[in-house]
């Protein structure tokens, strides 16, 4: 639906051709929007690396959680349970991203994945198993966000190429 709305201005019912300058303006705006969107993957990756740097020393940069809140949160899940959840999450995230790639979808969920991965760091921290499992979460994050980044960059590059072809067609028509 969103993609259909983004199409260049079509002729109206009376058959009047659209204004070329307006179409060109809209196309340039779409190219700019796509260029901004294609860099989202890098932003999400940078955010995840920043979170990982904080998590690397078992969140020692942050103040420790008060005992009251820790007690209210209850007993943390076992590290085996968290590891099982991480495997299932990584597998399903990869399958979803590959299916989005296959379907040519514009959807991007890199920032949500940064949230989920931060939650895994948190769970391992509370289960006192972050030291042993840090690199597993990091590898999962790099894989998922790498795929997301590649998908959105590839999608935007193709869309930009299509828009540039429209611009070229407008330029050709202007010359004639």
């Amino acid at each position: 639906m969103k993609r259909a709305l983004d199409r260049p201005t079509a002729p109206d019912n009376a058959g009047t051709p659209p204004d070329r300058d307006l179409v060109k303006q809209e196309t340039l705006q779409r190219i700019e929007r796509l260029r901004t969107k294609s860099s989202r993957g890098l932003w999400a990756m940078a955010l995840f690396i920043a979170v990982s740097i904080v998590a690397l020393n078992d969140f020692s940069l942050l103040p420790s959680l008060p005992e009251g809140i820790r007690a209210a949160l209850g007993k943390p899940p076992s590290s085996i349970m968290i590891s099982g959840a991480l495997v299932v999450y990584t597998f399903s995230a990869i399958i979803l991203i590959l299916s989005r790639m296959m379907g040519g979808s514009e959807e991007y969920s890199g920032f949500s994945h940064v949230g989920y991965l931060t939650a895994f760091y948190g769970f391992y921290h509370f289960a006192k198993a972050l030291g042993d499992n840090f690199w597993a979460v990091f590898a999962a994050g790099i894989t998922i966000l790498g795929l997301e980044s590649y998908h959105i960059w590839n999608f935007c590059s193709e869309a930009i190429k299509r828009e540039e072809e429209i611009l070229a067609a407008i330029e050709r028509n202007n010359r004639q």
Binding site: I80, S83, V87, A136, A139, T143, L147, Y150, H151
Partner: peptide
């Protein structure tokens, strides 16, 4: 090649690290 390579490499590495940890 890039998407399946990233997917397979990443998933195998994650599983191996978790298996080693367990």
């Amino acid at each position: 090649i890039v998407p399946p390579a990233i997917a397979v490499t990443g998933f195998v590495i994650v599983c191996c690290i978790l298996l080693y940890s367990v």
